[in-house]
Amino acid sequence: MNPEPRTSQALNALTVAFLALTLAFLLDLWGRPLALTEIPPVDPQFTNTATVRLSIADQIAAGADPSDWDCYICHDRKKPPQLRFDENQNLLIPEEHEDIQLHHGSHNRNNNCFNCHNENNLDLLQTRDGRELKLAESTPLCGSCHGPTYRDWEAGAHGRANGHWHDSFGPRLRQACVACHDPHAPAFPQQKVGPGPYPLRPVDIPTAHPQPPH
């Protein structure tokens, strides 16, 4: 018999506790890593640096046929086209131009083609102060009405820029108004939204199926 039964009991208990701990550690009862749910890759459209639309100049540079913008293939040079309006003074767009959605300005009063196009030479644009511009060089035309925005654009505060933040490092590519705005409906179009952040813990991801403990 051990003369000190309490010591003996304590030692026995310690041994059992240590063996239990050994088992627990080996089975990894805690600290088992959560299985990470693979987050799907992001659609490349969300990292594309292209502008939301292509201007005429961009399309011609990309190899489009310039004759697509030759108005006098259909129109007659000697006969300026006549605009037709309905009883509410809304412009009736002829079916040959039905791809044009005219929403320039929320008031819907800027609905006259010849506010911007030159009715006597449809291949040209015309500012309200009488300057004539080519179709592919429309930026000063926009600026002739949108003065503050044009001023900001010239200073670099409006519109996209790519390239270099100072000319000493390399070129800075500025975009024309019509690279982002449809001149017939210039409000910036709604865009698809990129995927939002996933929760940090995989079990918090709603679609995730945490692996059963094994």
Binding site: H158, H164, W165, H166, S168, F169, Q175, C180
Partner: peptide
């Protein structure tokens, strides 16, 4: 630091991001 714009600026479709010295 080699003069280029940050990536977030170049991808912004609206030009809302501006960067410089």
């Amino acid at each position: 630091r080699v003069g280029r714009y940050p990536a977030c600026l170049e991808v912004c479709p609206t030009g809302a991001r501006k960067f410089g010295n």
